[in-house]
Design a binder for these strands. Structure first.
Lengths: 356, 356
DNA sequence: ATGTTCGTTGCATACGAATGCAAAATCGCC
DNA sequence: GGCGATTTTGCATTCGTATGCAACGAACAT
């Protein structure tokens, strides 16, 4: 049982005294671009090293009004897409000398309590992945001058930026692919009903099919969850109108769906049923699954996200910016192949119809 | 182009003025247990709400010398075990009103630069997952009064706590299981050479086999990496002494190994080769793999980790504490079954030999 | 009415670093 | 060596909150 007091660290004043200079000199030594002679600088650095001094980022934040912390709110970490994103974000933010305060395990609705926490730390920016934000809160961020970026979601709300891929075109491309593969009946396993990704992918899919005179799509909902996707798959495969081509709204669900198809219904993929996913993430590439999937360029999406944040932090202008990137339909073995339209790029097979 | 200045937030003084009280009163309103009458408290809360005031955690940290931030250093996010851990950690820390500053994408060696960053934020504690720490740094943390917990790693170094499972016993249990399954030749695909988990699992495995007079174990190294595990598997399966029982040091690699076995070597699992993994994580449970695997109780490991941190933060006593938890050998379909020793628990099949 | 006690309140200061301003030191040039 | 120009330096203040201390007020007992 101790007092519970953390030993105080070395302060700039202590370093100053030790080096025989003022506290200002110490501060300037650790402030890039500040006016300081290299002689005193060396003295300070020597003393700092000897005393084990490290600038206190907390104190610095207080006066600069910059925490150099970015809040990241992320759920669905069980979907490997997001750990992937997280890892890239960590890298990209570190490169800009920013740090990542992670809030996790919150679903769409209750992002508000977590929001309170994150605002208390005066974060310089907010990244919302697989989560949305109420309009009051996004408004509050805007007036507080804190940039917000939705990652892999989008919203009409101004003052909230977003980074996505062309989900509608992706859905459409998948429709083209499946039609070109000679399929006659089509199904869709949906993600979260109110998510923009799900809405756009489905819309594109339906449009694409409609372009070929197909108006009926068997739909079940998996809510981007593995367990629910399994149930959705079971319902789908017991329908009298079981489709021969199935678009599953993301790979995370597609993996679950494939296991159900093969091991619970004895379906052969792609002979009995073609399955196409979305994200082109980890397990999609494993030989057991080999999912034909629309890719989302994680690295470029992350770059765009950080780019938007850095811009808005530097300029102080919070103005919604929507970056929309392109993906490719990576062709593997989970769906029947069309006669034409498949090209090779970077060692991968890509579906690229002529009119695209 | 703006000045680039973030609009300053509402301060306690502004709230004080608005409510007609002193700044101290505002502070006390938001400090649990402080001396304040409910009348002024109400006044303050009303004004705070009206102005949209939120206490500034940065300023608070400065004076309390407590940031309520825990640094988490984590690599190998591609192994779903770690996202799992991350999600639990987020939950557990949030429950204690702590926050999670994530550092990712760093391997064992270069944890030192990241360490500099994390010390600048005066974090109240450090969790190192899949990473270690040089002795100087751990020493520095100890003298600074910052508790450090190694997660799923351990070290002899005092002043550094750790949370692990009984890896040696786990390796041994796997040996017993494979021997009981009637296998005659044994192999091991190793994880990171210098990690304690790999060392302990292997040691237990070898000991367990030795207990049955088996002294030869075919070994290849996959370094806990998917790609390297594939190569290791290829080498393993082309050896003249290809074993019929294979322990892969974690599930993340085991999945890769199974794909190589089936699709590159046409091996049937478990008829031609039995495979056992470690972690009992996501993909291990998927029907395509159904890996027989030693489980690590993520939730309890996280609880123990947070527990240690909270204790040491509260007491100020930095004293190494090593929590070692138990796992179970969850039996699925990737390895031949022994005649006896399999019991059912919580809807899972567990291998529990009589002497255990 | 007076004195005592206890709970509230405000004042003043501290936390550690950054920065505008003016003083001091350095440099260049004639 | 002297003067102006320029760089370097230190002083003092600031950021937003917590907290020791003293003053204050209310409640109660005498």
């Amino acid at each position: 049982m101790d007092s519970g007091v953390k030993k105080p660290g070395v302060t700039s004043s202590q370093v100053a005294e030790h080096a025989g200079v003022s506290q200002s000199a110490v501060s300037r030594t650790f402030t890039p671009g500040a006016s300081i002679s290299s002689k005193t600088r060396q003295k300070v650095l020597a003393s700092a090293k000897e005393l084990g001094y490290r600038p206190n980022a907390i104190a610095r934040s207080l006066i600069t009004n910059r925490s150099r912390i970015i809040a990241v709110v992320m759920a669905y970490l069980e979907n490997l897409f997001y750990p992937d994103v997280l890892e890239e974000l960590g890298r990209a933010l570190a490169a800009e000398n920013y740090h990542l305060l992670l809030f996790t395990g919150f679903m769409d609705r209750d992002s508000d309590p977590v929001f309170d926490q994150l605002m208390q730390y005066r974060v310089d920016g907010i990244i919302l992945a697989s989560t949305s934000l109420s309009s009051e809160l996004s408004e509050e961020c805007a007036t507080a001058g804190i940039p917000v970026v939705l990652f892999n979601r989008t919203t009409e709300r101004d003052a909230v930026s977003s980074v996505t891929t062309r989900n509608r075109e992706g859905g459409k491309r998948i429709a083209e692919f499946l039609v070109a593969g000679g399929h006659k009946s089509f199904g869709y396993i949906a993600g979260l009903e109110n998510s923009s990704t799900n809405r756009d992918r489905f819309q594109g899919y339906v449009e694409g099919l409609a372009g070929h005179g197909i108006t009926s799509v068997a739909t079940e909902t998996g809510n981007y969850s593995r367990v629910e996707a399994q149930d959705a798959a079971r319902r789908m495969f017991t329908r009298p109108d079981r489709p021969e081509a199935l678009f599953v709204a993301n790979d995370h669900m597609a993996v679950a769906v494939m296991d159900v198809a093969r091991y619970e219904f004895g379906l052969r993929i792609p002979q009995d049923i073609s399955i196409v996913g979305y994200d082109d993430v980890g397990p999609a590439t494993w030989t057991s699954y080999g999912i034909t999937s629309m890719s989302q360029p994680v690295k470029r999406m992350v770059e765009a996200t950080v780019d938007i944040l850095m811009d808005q932090i530097a300029s102080g202008e919070i103005e919604a910016e929507h970056r929309i990137l392109n993906g490719d339909l990576v062709v593997r073995t989970s769906a029947r192949l069309p006669q034409s339209g498949i090209v090779s790029r970077d060692g991968q097979q890509i579906f690229r119809p002529k009119e695209a």
